[in-house]
Amino acid sequence: MAFYDRFVFITSTGTGFGLSAFQYVLNDPTFWRALKNTGILLLVALPLSVILALVCALLINSVKKFQGIFQTLYFLPYVTSTIAIGTAFLWLFHSQYGYITWFLNLLGLEGCAWLTDQNLVVWTLSFFCIWNGLAYKIILILAGLQKIDPEVYKAARIDGAGSLRTTMRITLPLLSPTIWMVALTSMIHTAKTYNEVYSLFTGYGGGGDAGPGNSAITIVYYIYYQFNARKAVNYAAAAAIIFLLIIIVLTLLQRVITRKLTHYV
């Protein structure tokens, strides 16, 4: 489908065969914006959220009382609809009536147009993605922590290792396969960010744009946008193929890195 110049999906017929759809997509500034935004999510939001999840999981695991309650509360976002939560964030981020702006003012900081400033929207999106994805990662890391043999800790205590030392020298190395696994599964998941964009930004510019001037667009949203809002099936298919290639490259990269770290994994 991506190789047709024009494609009518009602009749499933295309005319013209060639690379023009790829040419269009690769010359489309919106596509590059989608790539850039997805890249920011992968390179900034993903590592941040893994680190935050790790800290939360270590803390939850280290306290004795109320572990179950904390686990339950931190996990709540996982079971709730991103669209519903996005609706709440939509208002929390509101530049005038939002509580986030109010809170920043309280600290003596200026609020920003979180949802309408073209340069800012990707960071707003990152924040939401981190918040929304934390629950899943915390649970996976907690499960990994609980698999560590308690005998190891006993041995460390007998050897007189402090709690910080135990964490750095024992827990983290033993946990590294879990962390790596969480990072890998989250990578693919982050690369296909879509619901978060839809719930925070669709409906502002009209015509299915993701935020003002499509500034919050991600790759999967771009595919959807070409397909559903603009009915340009061939462009959507071309973008999908490019995305698939990116996923394959990412997966191969993961395998190479995994093999290098084979000692730990």
């Binding site: 489908m1 693919i188 595919i223 959807y224 397909f227 099936v233 698939l244 996923i247």
Partner: peptide, 12 residues
């Protein structure tokens, strides 16, 4: 490995 989101076109 293939994200389900990629299949929307074919499935549609």
């Amino acid at each position: 490995m293939v994200p389900g989101e990629l299949l929307i076109i074919q499935n549609y």
